[in-house]
Design a protein around this nucleic acid. Structure first.
Lengths: 225, 225
DNA sequence: GCGGGGATTATCCAAAAGGATTATATGCTA
DNA sequence: TAGCATATAATCCTTTTGGATAATCCCCGC
């Protein structure tokens, strides 16, 4: 099976290297190289349906029209074409936006050409978009750090599963993370500040921390609110 | 460098295979095998700090306490330990929940033992969680299909809008909310603890707060991370 | 070259938090 | 009923924070 490839990158050096490396593999056929988003769309429009590329390797930072815009336009105009980002950028904002724009995969330029070729081939065997490991981890962190949230459905609730704080302790933890002093917590609950403090110490032991800051970190990260 | 590994899987066959394969690599040292979440926590509690595993390979489907609960508990109790899911399940719900529970990586059992070993080693070189390519693509699709959405507050950036903290102050705030003492912050940045403290006081004035707890609350609520 | 902001370090003091220990009261349960 | 968990309260002591104040250094812009 022959994979038809388009390359879009403003650096002619990068274009040529890619071109050379992929041409070594008989499975790939380079259909065109373009130097920016506008150039890319023009070249795509000149092709008839049967000679459209299967996959377009798209750099992100380009003059005239950047990779994000090109992917958004291209995936709308040519839905059968898969767009794979191939860039040096690994910041989460770019990753997120590129995926939203319709990227099928996301590879870093510091992957070896061998790896890139391998992942592209793999994409057709497994019907899964190629992703550099580092990028996959970044996406995982997006999910983990609540930068993205699940639209509905239940997420895991560690409150009930672990840290079996008593009701009173839960209540006091709630005040603790709001920044109140022991004396203020005591005043709000009509108990002695000593008692408030005792509860807090007990909470620390259950959470295996030894400062308010660590307890707050845990409370926020694990959603113990 | 030696990587200390814990294995948690209810299938003794899988445990043994993993054990054998990893033991072939001199870089790995198997600290323990556990057959479920409860067994795992018991074994972890018997270890002193210095002999805790670096990474725990965790199956998901287990009797008594499943892998999700075990990861949630373990990552809270032993924050220095990295948890990597190693399972046959690749449905998005399990992936999502495992990540939320604190999984650092997610590998499929149909990876070759060689690959698993390689990805674990790679994890320490690149400080990025190991993720099987198929899983990476599933995660990408989660984002693409709007199953997850970017949090509004995460995109709004009050950092630049208000509180104009300097770069150094941002950096120190980052360590502050992690619960480090002044002396620890100083040590990490190679500055005097007095200086660290001075920065913190300056931060408080800019944020109009007067305690670490209040600063953390603000940082979390306003996404000053 | 002079001023200003940022980064660095320090000292002194007071307030607050953290930790250990002890003690009492209450309600549940083996 | 004896034991256990929880909540309450206090004392003593150490460590950490928060705040004020002052001094030095460096870089950048006027």
């Amino acid at each position: 099976m022959i994979i038809k490839v388009g390359i879009v990158d403003d650096k002619s050096g990068d274009r040529n290297i890619l071109n050379d490396k992929l041409s070594r593999h008989p499975e790939f056929k380079i259909i065109f190289s373009a130097k920016d988003g506008v150039d890319f769309l023009e070249k795509m429009n000149l092709l008839d349906q049967s000679s459209l590329p299967d996959v377009v390797l798209m750099d992100l930072e380009m003059p005239k029209m950047d990779g994000i815009a090109a992917i958004a336009a291209g995936s709308a105009l040519f839905p059968s074409v898969k767009f794979v980002v191939l860039t040096i950028f690994d910041d989460e904002e770019k990753i997120f936006v590129a995926i939203k724009a319709g990227a099928f995969g996301y590879l870093l330029k510091d992957e070896s050409a061998e790896n890139i070729a391998g992942m592209l081939l793999n994409m057709y065997e497994n019907d899964a978009g190629p992703i550099s490991p580092g990028i996959a981890y970044k996406i995982l962190q997006l999910v983990q750090n609540n930068k993205v949230t699940r639209d509905a459905k239940a997420t895991f609730d560690p409150k009930k599963t672990f840290f079996d704080l008593t009701d009173r302790e839960q209540e006091i933890l709630g005040l603790l993370v709001k920044g109140f002093l022991y004396k203020e917590i005591g005043a709000q609950l009509n108990i002695s500040p000593h008692t408030a403090k005792k509860h807090v110490i007990n909470i620390y032991q259950k959470l295996h921390v030894n400062s308010r800051a660590q307890a707050m970190k845990l409370a926020y990260e694990k959603g113990l609110l």
